[in-house]
Design a binder for these strands. Structure first.
Lengths: 141, 141
DNA sequence: TATAATTACTTTCAATATGCAAGTAAAAAA
DNA sequence: TTTTTTACTTGCATATTGAAAGTAATTATA
């Protein structure tokens, strides 16, 4: 797959060139919440991503170094996707987006234990979750 | 224009339902950097947005309460767009995206005075810029 | 061991979105 | 009065999306 074309040298614009669509950050979200996911896991998320879109976005995210595909121990069909350090580094942005949505969009669920903990102590939460995601092992579950 | 359809009650997903594309957040960026812009101003940004896309996104952002269209003093053709409080509230997310891009995408310009100031003192910078954007007046320039 | 079921995609195709270029209408400037 | 500016709108070719079905390589089951 060819490298993403950048529209300008603006960091915001270039970021959107990579993940500026309705699906890419949902994949990152799932990997933030679950640390590792199989292809099938992603299809089970509430937003019901189409499999062609999923395959395309996983490839793009991998091409852009945001996620890493690992072998699933003891199974040659399955694979395990995880966030790379670059992907983990996106979590502060994702958290701000989540906070914004929970606060500003009616009927969103901002009462999850996850968001509650963020609101209680953002800095502490960020360190904890990012450290955890950067650790090796504990891939399945 | 019809209300945005939400794919789930997830705050991240619903946020992307509103601004998950390659252009909407660039409009917010321009209004963060300049406080107010005319239609023509937006077309002059580096990414060269097409006028039909611009008109569509301005309408969507206005429909979703992120931006406000004001009359241009002394001119009945021009209008002035500004961030609403809801739009200003998105700035922390935008800043995190900018920081991520500047750090993780090659050839982006992360040396602007703007980003430099963010990196020097994020909290202070956020308060300053958000307070400024929430103020009335100083629309032109 | 033969067969069924999983898993991770790929393909097809209709619908929608994008983007370039040109057009328009109202107001402002010359 | 004519020209220019401004903010869009329209037409059309191309690209992307999304639902559904298909496939090939395992893995589980009878």
């Amino acid at each position: 797959m060819k490298a993403t074309e950048m529209r300008s040298d603006c960091p915001i614009s270039s970021s959107l060139d990579i993940f500026g669509d309705k699906w890419s950050l949902l994949i990152v979200r799932d990997l933030m919440l679950h640390k590792s996911r199989t292809y099938g896991d992603f299809t089970k998320s509430a937003e019901k991503i189409a499999t062609n879109i999923l395959a395309n976005r996983l490839q793009l995210l991998e091409d852009n170094g945001m996620i890493i595909k690992l072998p699933y121990p003891g199974n040659k069909v399955k694979g395990l996707y995880r966030l790379s350090p670059k992907g983990v580094d996106l979590i502060p942005a994702l958290i701000e987006i989540a906070l914004w949505g929970g606060k500003n969009i009616p009927d969103t669920d901002d009462s999850s234990p996850f968001l509650q903990e963020v609101k209680r102590n953002k800095t502490k939460f960020l360190k904890k979750i990012m450290d955890n995601l950067l650790e090796e092992g504990t891939n399945i579950g």
